[in-house]
Design a protein around this nucleic acid. Structure first.
Lengths: 154, 154
DNA sequence: GATTAATCCTAGTAAAATAATAGGGTATGA
DNA sequence: TCATACCCTATTATTTTACTAGGATTAATC
């Protein structure tokens, strides 16, 4: 039940982007440098966020990315689902009656998976990007490692 | 964010065990046959459930496993944590202030991981084994595939 | 128009985790 | 003594993850 680096790095990257893209587009290079991530890997994550219409890109010199929605209209759930795919704890749980596995009728555990799925989605959809950006600004205002060499692995 | 077969098979196995162990110990062989699981793999899962004190074993001929607690005192959370380890969505999230990663102070996302963790645990701890056993009996009473050849992969 | 700074797209690959399989040992009832 | 069952550890095949790499396209600037 672990998130992959896609979800972890991607959420951090998007918070960073939200924080720095108010005046001009933010390049992958700059996000990667601030967050201590591989540029090439981050590129792929940004591509996924773009496909999910959370960000848009400006190509060419001076280009980069900007948000495609207001920070308050992007939830952590939107971000994680874009990067991780469905957050369902199982793949063939028959949560969707159309796509359920063939043993769905006699499946006792499917309600368990359904409830876990619902609670995860509810939780991540309640948290919006603006809250996290605010928090990030506060932490930086307090002067905690403005140019930290320590990078979180999450 | 997927559960492994450990959690999925193990929960099913424990529901099966709870249902059939009222009169006598239930062997791995019989659970594996009913649930369509590998005996050898299931053996490892049962060992984990035993280490977590959820079940106890009776060795030798006629032996098998029985529950070590009342069905109403075993939660899905107990089972999944025994099999999957912590259900935290990240490993070094600094959720525990003692063990947190070194970038913990400046970590914006840790509250997100904390909230996901809390909601998952709350959900799985609310569901007790007795509910699932009841439901399983009902399904079987309705005559849904009493000796089904179709086995759920979850 | 050339250069440079960017995103874009696909493929490949090393490492880690997962899901089993396998072999042999120990206990116990008939 | 034999068959049935749990016990414990090691090995292995497969899958997934987390990158790395190459090269194409776009656009601003010199």
């Amino acid at each position: 039940m672990k998130l992959s680096t896609k979800g972890r790095y991607g959420l951090r990257a998007l918070i960073d982007l939200a924080q720095y893209s108010e005046k001009e587009p933010v390049s992958i290079t700059s996000i990667a440098a601030r967050q201590g991530l591989s540029e090439r890997y981050l590129e792929q994550l940004m591509s996924m966020l773009k496909k999910a219409d959370l960000i848009k890109s400006i190509r060419g010199a001076g280009g980069g990315y900007v948000l495609n929605k207001d920070v308050k209209d992007i939830s952590v759930g939107d971000v994680l689902r874009a990067l991780e795919g469905s957050l369902e704890p199982v793949t063939c749980s028959g949560l969707d009656p159309e796509e359920g596995c063939e043993a769905s009728k006699e499946c006792v555990t499917k309600y368990v998976w359904q409830r876990i799925n619902d609670s995860i989605n509810k939780t991540v959809d309640e948290i919006k990007l603006d809250q996290l950006v605010e928090e990030s600004k506060e932490i930086q205002a307090k002067g905690v490692s403005p140019r930290s060499e320590i990078h979180c692995k999450n």
